[in-house]
Amino acid sequence: MSDSHELSRRDFIKVTTGIVGGLIGAIVGLPSVYYLIDPALREGGKEAWIPIGKFEDMQIGTPYPFSFTRVQVNGWERTASSFGGYAIRKTDSPDELVILNSRCTHLGCTVNWDGKADAYICPCHDAKFSMEGEVLDGPPPRALESYGEHRITEDGTIEIFFKEG
């Protein structure tokens, strides 16, 4: 064998090893990335109308607290998550209810209505929100969120529309 032949043969092996290795790496590597992030790509869950209380029990001037639990299947386990909020009645028309989510817009703790302070107080970093959800004090960047649609049933129950995130 001549020298140049010897050399090109070595280079051939190097290049082939590189290409075959790269191919195998990609064939196993790309699915592996997909495997890792798969749970993050799932579509958000079911939609439902959730009853939160009777319209007649909601008093003008006092936020009406409610809470509910949703069960979701995550992987091989069922996980219950709690949600809550306040319904604020202003008139005799159920359409004009404001229904706030009690999840703090700062970092997600649950705010509580404090009648004496006339505000919702967040236990985590002392934020204060007005009855209708505006920020009065503390670090939150924006007002409390409200639940989207609501409706009233024949027997006077208020239901909110909820989509699992």
Binding site: V28, P31, S32, Y34, Y35, D38, P39, G75, W76, E77
Partner: peptide
């Protein structure tokens, strides 16, 4: 998950629930 309650289910999930779990 190495727990008697979930080991079997978690492998079931790997095989049927996760993308390319069967491959890995």
């Amino acid at each position: 998950t190495p727990s008697p309650d979930h080991a079997y289910d978690s492998i079931q999930y790997i095989m049927e629930g996760v993308a390319f779990g069967w491959l890995i």
